[in-house]
């Protein structure tokens, strides 16, 4: 199921794929939490980096956060040539963890500065008749 995550996919299988992708399809952003020690992670991971437990729980997070850095890509890798220029925003999430994601249509990157409040929004779209799920960065309203 993970092959539908992102705009170009490289990783088709991961232990955290099915639940995470199903969450995005429903419009929910999920972080993993270690059932043993409580360590929370976004993006999710199957194996606890602190206590090495493989038992994980899922928690929904708000996606609220602040801009840590950003850039506009003008030389794209294969498969994304038609996207240029596109902007990537690195977000420090309020509930812990980080995301690197595309700036959504409602986010004016020209007006962005570090520390600006933003929100990571779950998204779905059809690309070449294929369902893609991902998240993008929008202004925090």
């Amino acid at each position: 199921m993970f092959e539908s995550f992102g705009l170009v996919s490289f990783t088709s299988h991961t232990k955290v794929g099915d639940v995470f992708v199903a969450g995005l399809v429903e419009g929910r952003l999920l972080a993993s939490r270690c059932a043993s020690c409580g360590e929370q992670s976004f993006p999710p991971r199957a194996d606890c980096v602190v206590c090495r437990s493989g038992d994980l729980e899922w928690v929904e997070i708000s996606g609220r956060g602040r801009v840590s850095s950003f850039t506009t890509i003008r030389a794209a890798p294969v498969g994304l040539e038609e996207w240029v220029p596109y902007s990537l925003v690195l977000v420090d999430l309020e509930e812990g963890g980080r995301a690197l994601a595309l700036a959504g249509a409602g986010l004016d990157v020209g007006e962005l500065s570090l520390g600006t409040s933003v929100r990571l929004n779950p998204c779905r779209s059809e690309v070449n008749d294929e369902l893609r799920v991902y998240y993008e960065v929008e202004a925090d309203s």
Partner: peptide
């Protein structure tokens, strides 16, 4: 190859590039 310099699971899927990462460093 350039499209796979980052973490392919969570970053490259959005079109991150080598100069893109150093641009994030530079901005900060």
């Amino acid at each position: 190859l350039m499209g796979r310099v980052g973490d392919v699971q969570w970053e490259s899927v959005f079109g991150s590039t080598f100069p893109g990462y150093y641009a994030l460093f530079a901005r900060q």
